[in-house]
Amino acid sequence: MAIEKEGTLEVMGNSLYTKSWLPDGPIKAKLIFIHGFSDHLGRYNAFFPTLAARGIAVHGFDQRGWGLSVKKPADMGLTGPTTQVLADMAAFITPHLPSDPSDPPVFVLGHSMGGGQVLTLACHPEYQETVVRKVRGWMLEAPFISFSPEEQPSAVKVFAGRLAGRLLPHFQLKHEIMPEHLTRDVETRKSLLEDKLMHNTGTLEGLAGLLDRTAALASGQVRPLPGGALKSLWVGHGTEDKTTWYEASRKYFDEFTGEVQDKEFKAYEGWYHQLHDDGPDSKEFYKDVGDWILARCEEEGKAGPKL
């Protein structure tokens, strides 16, 4: 049974909601989780306790503009530019990083929009020594590298949004994602519609930053850097994902991750976007994530502390 703890992250004048799921016993590893667009930590209450039961402590926060970090309507979707998004993630990850060889290794997992953010952070020159090199492994669940054909906005809509965003960066805009595009599970679809914290609202500044990150990733402009700071990479994506595009993830992995020696891509045949909540099959995803993390913990243990 997981021990749940709530808290706050104070960063640049903002108080962001945090939550942890801790093992009732020794901690073998830490997993830092970054959620996606219009998402929040309360949507993962089957996944995280399962990992905690295997000795993996999970720590996450509702990102600026989302979930319980929203204090008033004007906060909805107010993520700030990409520099702010990366700074928030780094501020949350850093206190969990090991300071001693005996400390549990740290892994970072991002889902959907959060997957694109995590990958951008892992490839960013500014964070290579302070964050990336100290993280044992980076994991992406259905990362947002490109829209699926079902969700692809028109070029006119993108151009108009970017133009307006320069004049009204905090202007709020609804972007509805149909529940039937997220999961095959009927009950989960219903809960998505009823979830009042999922407001589907972005700002023009935040949406422009999201589009810029995906464009940089899809083109390979942002990729793992030489030098081996990004040690290990795991990517999981459903082949029938109707929100982010499986083919884009596969292409990125095949063409742009040559600097990563320890890497794995898992195709979930027939699965949709929310691998963590796609019906009974999701237990396979839970096992895959836990197995990948614990295998690297065992390798660390065999290697012994570095003197």
Rank of each mutant, 00 (worst) to 15 (best):
S15R: 10
H96C: 11
F253W: 11
K263E: 08
G115W: 03
T130N: 10
E284A: 14
G236N: 01
D88H: 07
A248L: 01
G36C: 06
V106E: 11
K157A: 15
A74S: 12
G227D: 01
Q172T: 00
G227S: 02
R54L: 08
C297W: 13
G228M: 05
S38T: 12
I56V: 15
T244M: 00
G304T: 06
P169E: 07
K72P: 00
M139T: 02
M76P: 01
A46M: 09
T50V: 07
P49K: 02
A52D: 09
S99H: 03
D277S: 06
I3F: 04
G220L: 07
L217Y: 11
V58D: 07
E259N: 12
G137K: 09
R296K: 14
I93Y: 04
E180I: 09
P305Q: 12
D195S: 05
R213W: 06
L192D: 10
Y268A: 11
M198H: 02
P105R: 11
R213M: 14
L121F: 09
G36E: 12
T18G: 03
I177F: 12
A87C: 06
P98W: 01
H170N: 14
V131P: 00
G270Y: 14
R296L: 14
W234C: 05
R223Q: 11
K266R: 15
D88K: 05
H276E: 08
E10A: 04
P101G: 08
L182W: 01
A87H: 10
T203Y: 01
K190Y: 03
K190I: 04
A87I: 08
E141F: 06
F33N: 01
K71T: 13
T130S: 15
F61D: 07
R54I: 02
H181D: 12
D185V: 06
L86I: 09
T214K: 00
K242F: 02
E126R: 15
G258A: 13
M1V: 09
